[in-house]
Nucleic acid binder design. Structure first.
Lengths: 112, 112
DNA sequence: TCTTATGCATAAGAAAATTATGTATACTTG
DNA sequence: CAAGTATACATAATTTTCTTATGCATAAGA
C-alpha cells in the first residue's frame, strides 16, 4: 500500500479472507483484486505480499499449485483445512478490532 | 494492546483523537480511557505509549505541562494548533482505511 | 524500441509495536 | 507490617511488518 501507508498488520487476514471466497488465487491476482475492491486505495506491494504468502504456507495455512499460463508461471494458493479455521478466527479478530477502533473514533458509539 | 496484539499503526491517531475531545490528558489517563472505551479489549502498553507521545511532542503536535498530584508527577499533553489539524487529517485517514477494510471483509459492501 | 503489464522472488532498511526493565509513591489486604 | 496492586513516568532490546529497491522473465501496446 503506497497511498494510505500501512496495511497495519491486516494483510494476512485480507489474504485469508479472499481465499475463503475464491478457492484459489495467485499472488498477482490478489493484488489486483484488492486494488479493485478498494477502488485503487490499497496497493499491496510485492515486498509485503510474497513474504506473507510464504509465511502462511510455511505455517500450513496455505497449499500451492503451480500453473503455466501464456508462458508465464502462476503460483496458486488455496486454504488448507487449518487455514480455513485460521481465516475464520483472524477475520473475527479484525472485525472486533475495527469495532473497538470505531468506538474510539466515534465516542457516541461507546455509550450504546 | 495485549489482547488483539497490535494497534496496527493507529496509536498516534487514537491519542490525537482523545486529545481533541479532552483538551488535556496525561499518559496513564490515556491508557485507562482507551481501556474503558473498548471494554478492556485494547490495552496500551507504556512501551508503545510514551515513545509515541514523545514523538508527537517532538513533531510539534503536542505541548506538555507537568503537575504534581498526591506527590506523583503527571505530565499533561495538549494539542498544539498544528496538532489539531493533524488530528483531523489522521482521523479522516483512519476512517477511510476502515471503510476500505470493511469492503474487503464484507464483499457485499464493495458493490454498493 | 521502450514502456507498461504480468508474474515471481529476495534483501536492506524503517516504523511501530511487544516485552522487559527501572524508578518512585500510594493504597489495600492478609 | 509485608506484599501485592495501582498510579505514573521512562528507556532498551527485540520482533513484526511494512516500504523501497532490486532482480529475473515473458507479453502486449505505443
Amino acid at each position: 500500500m503506497s497511498s494510505s501507508k500501512l496495511l497495519k498488520g491486516s494483510l494476512a487476514t485480507i489474504i485469508l479472507k479472499l481465499l475463503k471466497e475464491n478457492e484459489k488465487m495467485y499472488g498477482y491476482e490478489i493484488t489486483q483484486r484488492v486494488k479493485e475492491i478498494t477502488a485503487g486505495e490499497f496497493k499491496i506491494t510485492e515486498g509485503a505480499l510474497y513474504p506473507t504468502l510464504h509465511k502462511l504456507e510455511a505455517e500450513g495455512m496455505l497449499s500451492t499449485e503451480t500453473q503455466k499460463v501464456d508462458n508465464r508461471i502462476r503460483k496458486y494458493y488455496s486454504l488448507t483445512k487449518e487455514g480455513n479455521a485460521e481465516a475464520q478466527t483472524k477475520v473475527a479478530e479484525l472485525e472486533e478490532f475495527l469495532l473497538n477502533l470505531q468506538k474510539l473514533l466515534n465516542p457516541k458509539l461507546g455509550m450504546g
